[in-house]
Amino acid sequence: MPDRMSPLVLSTESVSTQEAFDYWRDSVCAMYVRMQVDPLTSADFHARIEYATLENSVGLSRVRADAQRARRRPVDLQADAEDCILGVITLDGQAVLEQDGRTVDAKPGTLIFLDSTRPYTATWTSMFEELVVQVPTRSISVTDTRSLTAQAFGPGTVAPVVTSCFTSLFDLVSTDPAQAAPLVPHALGLFGAAVATAARRKSEPEEITAVLRQQVFDFLRSHACDPELGADTVASACGVSRRTLYRIVGGGGVAHHIREIRIDRAKKLLQRERYQSMGAIAAACGFGSESGFHRAFRESVGATPADYRQMVRP
């Protein structure tokens, strides 16, 4: 039986050319909210949605499609069972989004919010790719979203952290839903913090923590292979005190999380690099010595690196 978080794939490749756009229009309305969708090209239309349902009815999807216009009209507003906030992360291509009297250009790297309770328009003039986070309005602590919709959040805002988090989460949901499941609550906390920031409302402490936690773990994953990496370096890079850092990372402390990231990388190398020496793998993963790598790996995995390589070898 497929995992409940495994993405559902809807693609125009599954139907004839003549049926493609009608199929796409129905798919968009079924996965997101009711709207009018029209093609902007006379050529063959191609589009694809990979849609995963997370906890609390949160949707996370990747969309790749040809030029089109989607309009959420007043007549559509009563057609859905639940209202939602949409976080649109542009990965490729460009779009123009309109809501609440504002018009904004969506470019790669931007995060833009839309509210399904009011009309909006989204126009893509060429092929595009985007990640869409769909969160029920009841899960968002902001009561008035008019100050956050149809505005582009990019570098220098919370957008890069949100983009990194949900892009990585989608990739993990697609390949290993069981491993992704514990990360979902942290990702949703981060989304709530992003909404609060965009709405110019002071974030609640737990929302601030979600943002900082994501920043810390992004840094840890990027620098875990540095054998000199430690709490002081992480705290300085993320702009927090050591005390705050340890509160953010929780049980086991910074050293524990660095070790687990290194061991996870070592497991991938042991599976992929059948003939690479243990010393080379230890160094590539940030361990200061082969003996230290051997000891840490056995404590965490319950097997030596050599035994693990033998177990996972195809």
Rank of each mutant, 00 (worst) to 15 (best):
L212S: 11
H186T: 11
R200P: 00
C225F: 06
G286T: 03
A81C: 05
F191M: 11
D100I: 01
I49R: 00
E129K: 03
A106C: 13
N56L: 13
L97S: 11
T123D: 09
S42N: 14
P7F: 05
F297A: 07
V162T: 09
R274V: 12
P108H: 11
K268F: 08
S6V: 07
C285H: 03
L169H: 09
T163V: 14
A210F: 03
P305D: 00
R242G: 08
F191K: 05
L97T: 06
E82I: 11
S241M: 07
S174I: 02
H186P: 00
S126L: 03
I281G: 06
T197H: 06
T233E: 06
Y120D: 12
A20H: 01
T145A: 14
E19R: 14
Q99M: 08
G101N: 02
A193M: 12
E206N: 07
S116M: 02
K107H: 07
D76R: 02
Y308F: 15
Y275N: 11
V132D: 08
E19D: 13
V240Q: 08
I112L: 14
G292N: 10
A43N: 09
Q68C: 10
Q179R: 15
A122Y: 00
E50Y: 06
R213C: 10
L91K: 12
V216W: 12
R4V: 04
P74H: 04
G230P: 02
V216Q: 10
D38L: 15
G109Y: 02
N56F: 07
A199R: 05
D44K: 15
S300D: 09
F21H: 01
P205K: 07
R48H: 14
P136H: 06
D3V: 03
K267E: 13
A306D: 13
R72Q: 04
L77H: 01
T17A: 12
H294V: 05
G93I: 05
V254Y: 01
L111N: 05
A306G: 08
R69A: 07
P185Y: 03
K107D: 08
Q151R: 15
A196S: 14
V234W: 00
G189A: 08
S277E: 10
W124F: 15
R221W: 01
D80R: 13
A199K: 09
A283G: 07
P136Q: 01
P119L: 06
F153V: 03
V96F: 07
S164I: 00
A198F: 06
Q36N: 12
T143C: 00
R243H: 12
A181S: 13
L86F: 14
I248Q: 01
A194I: 06
V173E: 13
A199W: 07
S141Q: 12
P177T: 03
S241D: 05
R138H: 04
Q214A: 15
V162M: 08
D171Y: 07
D3N: 15
M278W: 04
Q36I: 06
R265A: 14
S116Q: 09
Q276K: 15
L40D: 05
L229T: 03
W124K: 13
G189P: 13
K267N: 05
S116R: 08
G189E: 09
F45N: 03
L77W: 08
Y120C: 10
